[in-house]
Structure formats: C-alpha cells, structure tokens
Computed example of a mutant assay.
Amino acid sequence: MGGDVVVRRADVADVGEVARLFAGYLEFYECPRPPAEVSAYLTARFANGESVVLLAAVGGRVVGFAQCYPTWASLELAPAWVLYDLFVDPSARGLGVGRALLRAVADHARAAGATTAVLETAHTNTTAQALYESEGWVLDTTYRTYALTL
C-alpha cells in the first residue's frame, strides 16, 4: 500500500466501507456489535443528517474514518463539532492517515462555521493523544467530563 492519503466526505453509498472500519473501531474499544447493528446505526446517521463521516484512502483503498457530530457551543453562541470516532486500519497506521483525517475534520468544521471542535479519547490511548497534541488539539484543564449510564 502506498501513495498519498486522500480524504473525502462519505455518503450513504459508503455505509459498507464505513461499517467495516467502524467494526474495527468498536473492537479496539472492546465494544463489538453485530454487523447488521453497525450498518443500521450508520445508515440512520446518514439518513437523518446527524453526522459527518470522512473517509481516508491510500492507494485507492479506504483505510480510515472520522465521524463528527455538529452541535452548538453555547458559551460561544456558535456552532461546534464533536469528533466522536476516529479509526485507522492497523495495516495503514504510520502512513499519516490519522493526521490527514484530523486536518480534514478541522477544515470541514471551519467551513461549516464551527468555532471549536472537541474530542475525547481513552486515558490509555497515548499514541492518539500524541497525534492530537501535535496537530494543535489542547487537553482541557478547565472542564471535567462526567457520564451517566442510562
């Protein structure tokens, strides 16, 4: 596999490719799901216009994706994006795919009028943390994230 990383916005016709990568993402985070559930989830996000999915290809092969959810930053009274999912196939790691996806997320968010983009990652995912920080993402030291399982 060689060549430049090409990133493009996915659409509903890409659900199969996104689902393949999304399954790898879920495995990485130890949350596997049946393929039909993954495809149904992604199809609904596309159909309802609820997320923006970017696909990265190297040598014509799709090897990574980022899924973002446009939302609002109420303290800024402006649009914001949440980068919720980012995954690069293990065979393509080290080729700049994650970096290309991060840059494309920032470009698309800016073009959509967003004033900020945020993401979360596991405390143990230090490889991803180093990448994010090298691309200008800053660890939030002001706010603490909480979750309530419902």
Rank of each mutant, 00 (worst) to 15 (best):
M1A: 14
M1S: 14
M1R: 11
G2F: 11
G3A: 02
G3M: 02
D4W: 00
V5W: 01
V5G: 04
V6W: 01
D11A: 13
D11Q: 09
A13C: 03
D14P: 01
A19K: 02
R20I: 07
F22H: 15
A23H: 06
L26P: 01
L26M: 08
L26T: 01
E27F: 00
E27G: 00
Y29H: 07
Y29N: 00
E30V: 10
E30R: 13
C31S: 14
C31G: 00
R33K: 15
R33E: 15
A36D: 15
S39K: 09
L42T: 07
A47L: 11
A47K: 12
N48F: 03
S51G: 04
V52R: 07
V53P: 05
L55Q: 08
A56L: 05
A57Q: 10
V63T: 14
V63K: 09
V63H: 11
V63Q: 10
Q67R: 13
Q67C: 13
P70K: 11
A73P: 00
A73H: 10
A73F: 10
L75R: 03
E76Q: 10
E76K: 09
A80Y: 01
V82L: 14
L83Y: 02
D85E: 12
P90G: 11
R93S: 05
R93P: 04
G98L: 08
A109Q: 03
A112V: 06
A112C: 06
T121N: 12
A122F: 11
T124Y: 09
N125F: 10
N125Y: 08
Q129S: 05
Q129A: 09
L131R: 04
E135K: 06
Y143F: 15
R144F: 13
R144E: 10
T145A: 14
Y146Q: 08
Y146I: 10
Y146H: 12
